[in-house]
Amino acid sequence: MIAFPNAKINIGLNITSKRADGYHNLSSCFLPIDWKDALEIIPADEFEFTSSGLDIPGDSSGNLCVKAYELLKEKHDIPPVKMHLHKVIPMGAGLGGGSADGAFVLKLLNDQFEIGLTKNQLEAYAKTLGADCPFFIDNKPKLATGIGEVMEDISIDLSGYSIVVVFPGIHVSTKTAFSGITPKEPSYDLKAILLQSPKTWQGTVVNDFEETVFAAHPEIQKIKAQLLDLGADYASMTGTGSAVFGVFGDSVDINLLKGQVVFSSGQLL
């Protein structure tokens, strides 16, 4: 069976408090986009994981695809499989590609071997893989709180809009990104404003990590400015970076963004 794990962007990302367990509570909107990896799983005599496309650093035992398989195999009677991941979504970009891969393995195994897990059960398994993973089980626009695992549906009307994502190939250290964060409640109601036109978002809906990341990597800030100059109604860094996206109501010539990895989509999932 084949599936196509997709990326997500964060519209607004506010760190609201630090928890006793060391994690941080947040408020954000997760929006799936159709920048996709490709994942194939077939039965085999012994387990094997291979990959192509973008180079995946580290040992495969730490890959979320492998961890997802091991997690279900521990609890359910599933056979060995051969798993191949063709990696397209850049890593370390704040796009959730690795989390999507892990979540899609759970869904694919559940369907392929008729395990019978419900959406809630799949989300519970996904939560053990990472805070972003449960989102990709339902894979619909969500307003996220907690550490990202508490989600509610949100209807965002982006019909007629396109998303342009620019990845400059810069690795942003999560430690650096959090170093300048002072947790606080946002001064705006994210859910209420996202129900309005994207033309109203800029200057109000913010990513708290931008200030620290832009200071460390001014070239990321320049990309945001460039997207706004090209006519984006809204532009922001996603996650802790380094990808930046623009929401465009009018057509945009992405060739003006030469020398960078650019994804453009007129279709939202």
Rank of each mutant, 00 (worst) to 15 (best):
I42V: 15
W35D: 03
D250T: 14
S60E: 15
K8G: 03
E219D: 08
G58E: 07
L71P: 10
D153N: 12
F104C: 01
G97S: 00
D189W: 05
T16N: 06
D229E: 15
K87P: 08
Q260K: 15
F248S: 01
L257E: 01
D250L: 11
D132V: 08
L122S: 04
P168S: 05
K107I: 13
L256V: 06
D208H: 14
I223K: 04
F113G: 12
F47W: 06
F209A: 00
L117W: 02
A3I: 14
S28P: 03
G180F: 06
F136E: 02
G58L: 02
D138F: 14
S197H: 15
V252P: 04
G203P: 10
K18P: 02
M91L: 13
H76C: 12
I41Y: 05
D77R: 13
G246S: 09
S60F: 11
G58M: 07
I9A: 06
L54M: 09
F209G: 08
K75T: 08
G259C: 11
I147F: 09
A144E: 05
V172G: 03
K222E: 15
F113C: 11
P198D: 02
I170F: 09
A192M: 14
V66G: 06
Y188T: 07
A7N: 03
K142F: 13
P90D: 00
E210D: 05
D208V: 09
P218A: 02
E46T: 12
K82D: 08
G148C: 01
K82T: 08
G58K: 07
G116W: 11
K8I: 00
H171M: 10
A68L: 01
G241F: 10
Y161Q: 01
V165W: 01
I156A: 08
H24E: 10
H76T: 05
P218W: 04
M91H: 03
V164H: 10
V166Q: 00
V150D: 12
M151D: 07
K175W: 09
Y161H: 08
K191G: 13
T238W: 07
V205A: 05
D45W: 11
S51V: 04
L13C: 07
I181F: 11
C29A: 13
K140V: 15
T50I: 12
D77C: 05
N255L: 06
K75F: 12
L108S: 07
D21I: 01
D45P: 12
E48C: 15
E46L: 00
V206H: 15
K222R: 14
N10S: 06
G53F: 00
A216D: 13
F245S: 02
D138P: 02
I33L: 04
P168D: 02
I15P: 06
F209Q: 04
A44Y: 13
T204V: 14
D59L: 09
T182I: 15
M237W: 05
G239W: 00
T200G: 08
K175M: 06
G94M: 07
D111F: 08
D250A: 13
Y234T: 05
S236L: 14
K140E: 13
P80I: 03
L122N: 01
G102L: 08
Y161R: 06
I254S: 02
P32K: 08
P218Q: 01
I193N: 00
E152H: 13
P43S: 01
S61G: 10
L85A: 01
S99V: 03
T238K: 10
G53H: 07
N14K: 13
M1G: 15
L64T: 10
I2A: 10
